[in-house]
């Protein structure tokens, strides 16, 4: 991702910042309490709930579970980022959305050799924004196949 002029969204899970290519995002839904249905879950596929979005139900994935991140935010207070994929729209639950940034504001940063094994399968890229690490979020690891960019 991260070509010149591209914009990215920075969001938070627990104390960790992530970045996501804005072109993959359909919409950000900040009030989710009344449109979530945890009864429509499929835990074997990492789907913790369903969310009503534009007169349809879309699967909801909580990446904090896979990433083993402690989230202090209750399910009903989370923000949903609606993403498009080859299998249709789906929702990513996050603790909060921080800011929009230009991709060129991020500096490349290698994952140390000693952390590459533990990161493998969960993330493959970290960048620095104002000297702070931001994990490049890879949606295809969580739902659907290749992301569909608008």
């Amino acid at each position: 991702m991260a070509e010149a002029g591209q914009r990215v969204l920075v969001f938070r899970l627990g104390k960790i910042a992530f970045m996501l290519d804005l072109a993959q995002i359909v919409e950000i839904v900040e009030q989710t309490a009344d449109i979530l249905d945890p009864g429509r879950s499929d835990i074997s596929r990492g789907i913790v709930s369903a969310l009503q979005f534009r007169q349809t139900w879309v699967p909801v994935v909580d990446p904090a579970l896979k990433l083993d991140i402690f989230s202090p935010v209750a399910l009903k207070d989370k923000v949903a980022i609606i993403l498009r994929s080859s299998e249709g729209n789906w929702a990513l639950l996050v603790d909060g959305v921080s800011e929009l940034q230009l991709a060129e504001n991020f500096q490349p940063c290698e994952i140390p050799f000693l952390l590459q094994v533990s990161a493998s399968g969960f993330y493959s890229e970290v960048r620095l924004l104002k000297g702070k690490p931001v994990v490049v979020f890879e949606p295809e690891s969580y739902y659907g196949s290749a992301p569909v960019v608008a």
Binding site: K15, I16, D68, C109, L115, S118, V126
Partner: peptide, 22 residues
């Protein structure tokens, strides 16, 4: 700073001269 899935003995990472340090 925290990163996902740090090994148990790694409590955080530091940023030093643009590098991540466990």
């Amino acid at each position: 700073y925290q990163l996902p899935r740090l090994p148990g003995a790694v409590s955080a990472v530091l940023v030093d001269e643009g590098r991540l340090i466990p």
